[in-house]
Design a binder for these strands. Structure first.
Lengths: 346, 346
DNA sequence: ATGAAAGCGCTAACAA
DNA sequence: TTGTTAGCGCTTTCAT
């Protein structure tokens, strides 16, 4: 302990914290002694116990890291969050989400890691075991893109309205047979066409909301293809399932619930010998940069991802200050690119 | 405190830890009392202070998160690391690397967050301020893909030999004019052709080692294009710079130091109207899945990324057990795809 | 302006 | 088998 080296006891605390009244000379003496003993400042563990705060925000990614982080949306969200949290002196602890059906339902870190707040990326329902464990521990929770749940702060975007606007754009272009490619419906992931029963059983609301957006535009999709994750290859698989039929019955437009899925659809359509947008229009959601689609630019709904992360960060700040931040729904914006065009003459 | 509720004091500790002798009846009584008071197990802060361990591994990503995580290599490494650390009860704290030249050199978390070990992804030299801060704090460090530094554990791959083998593959195909596209040379990032002076000043050894690999195969690159980050768009820019000249002098093969760069080169070559591999061969490094290149498969050097993460995890385990884990150099393997072929007849 | 003392919640040694 | 005690390193009253 530096105090032994210097002369005082807890005056050292003042010397380091800067708070409290202390003579410049004394402070300097303490700092010098610390340097001599290469003591590098207060031990964070002691400080944390004393203050009851760990300075750590646990971020539960909705999936195995590998899969989550292949999704630029999660990454950019995390980036915005880290940028906001850093200046507040808060660090982000990565917590893997449920890995597989036969794995333990919640990561041990959720049960026992020190954290002041937790963030659930990608939703969660009330009976989510992670949510229950956190509430048992009394750790406040911020949920991104989930249900509106009592007792937790929810940050989302107005995706339903965004998809509705996008769909109307397609209707205005004369499209009548519109198919859609969705995000996963729930923990039981599938890559397949979904029937009405399956659609009725959607538990992850993000897929449901974006599907509702299509209906809001007065459109009933000719087919709904459900994917197990927002990845390019699943979009390609969807394209093969949706676009292999004859031109007379094939959809003339595909609305994908993410840009990654949409770019997979574009690639799949090309593999089938279809031109985009002459033979089929493709639209996405998110507003990512997709350099490999160049020179095409995807028509999509742009969501403010980094801003979403920052909003989560501010909610955390408010929570830690003892406040009760309001839920937030951020606006989205339609961006028309080159992958949508007039419906082909039938 | 549960002890008040139950009947005992620190017997509760035994009840929760499971260690030590305790009567089943007593344990049950404690657990019941805990449930009644909804006490959710020992406070991690107290436990941490007592044990002197935080259970946290700080991972310093070599860059802004946004950029780091667009690189699948970092993500998969992190994934392998998290998978290994989880069962050990260790969590990963994300620490942003240097963000910009005018930013503070090290993130405050490096100075003051509680962590038992730190991992530096993507290198670091001896005078790296992060490394210095960590050593001042007495926190052991594992470095991935960096220099061999005294006092830190280094985990890497045999990339030099891998690039040499790859280059020999091209030589065997008859290529004589081979250009190369490199990873960043150091913190001062550029997107430009590099002259000899610039090459002599490489500080991030990963670029240097992979460049040396080309020479090991007896090849002097006709041009070296330096990129500011391992991203598709920088590969495309490199392709335009390297492949715009007349066929007689243009390189017939390009060795990129990452798959992302290589796929950018492929896209750029196509934009220039060149066929891959008939007009120009392109090879990469990493062994990623690149769905958007389909049906092409990149010729590349496959590195065991997840295994690298796991190796880092095991080194951390050994470090925390008081051992001194050895540096590791993991093997790589050439994978020939469809993007390299015989040199065009000149 | 500085020092003394208490206590954050826990666990490990020891005593009973 | 259980209870008592001490102390991890810190910050914060409260005295001096």
């Amino acid at each position: 302990m530096a105090s032994a080296a210097g002369v005082s006891v807890s005056t050292a605390s003042l010397a380091f914290s800067g708070a409290g009244p202390i003579a410049d000379a004394t402070r300097q003496r303490v700092l010098d002694a610390a340097a001599a003993l290469d003591y590098s400042g207060p031990n964070p563990l002691g400080r944390q116990l004393r203050s009851g705060r760990s300075g750590i925000v646990g971020v539960v990614v909705g999936d195995a890291l590998r899969r989550s982080f292949r999704d630029p949306v999660s990454v950019q969200l995390l980036d915005g969050l880290v940028d906001t949290l850093g200046p507040l002196g808060l660090g982000v602890l990565l917590i893997p989400g449920p890995t597989g059906p036969d794995q333990p339902p919640v990561d041990p870190l959720i049960e026992s890691a020190a954290m002041d707040v937790a963030v659930l990326i990608w939703g969660g329902t009330l009976d989510d075991p992670a949510l229950q464990a956190l509430s048992r521990r009394g750790i406040p929770v911020v949920v991104v893109e989930g249900h509106d749940l009592p007792g937790v702060v929810t940050i989302g975007i107005d995706d339903r309205a965004g998809v509705a606007e996008l769909t109307r754009h397609l209707v205005d272009l004369g499209h009548e047979r519109i198919a859609t490619v969705t995000l996963p419906f729930g923990p039981a992931r599938r890559s397949a066409l979904a029937d009405a029963d399956r659609i009725a059983g959607i538990t992850w609301t993000i897929a449901g909301r974006r599907l509702d957006g299509v209906h809001d535009a007065g459109v009933t999709p000719t087919a709904v293809y459900e994917t197990p994750a927002s990845l390019v290859e699943h979009g390609t698989a969807a394209a093969h399932a949706l676009l292999s039929g004859p031109a007379a019955t094939r959809p003339t437009a595909v609305v994908a619930q993410s840009d990654l899925l949409a770019s997979g659809v574009v690639l799949g359509a090309r593999e089938l010998g279809l031109r985009v947008p002459q033979d089929v229009s493709v639209a996405g959601f998110d507003g990512l940069d997709l350099p490999w689609l160049a020179p095409d630019v995807l028509t999509t709904v742009v969501q403010p991802i980094a801003e979403k992360g920052a909003t989560v960060g501010r909610a955390i700040e408010a929570l830690l200050a003892g406040g009760t931040p309001a839920d937030a729904v951020l606006p989205v914006e339609l961006r028309t690119g080159t992958t949508t065009g007039p419906a082909p003459r039938g």
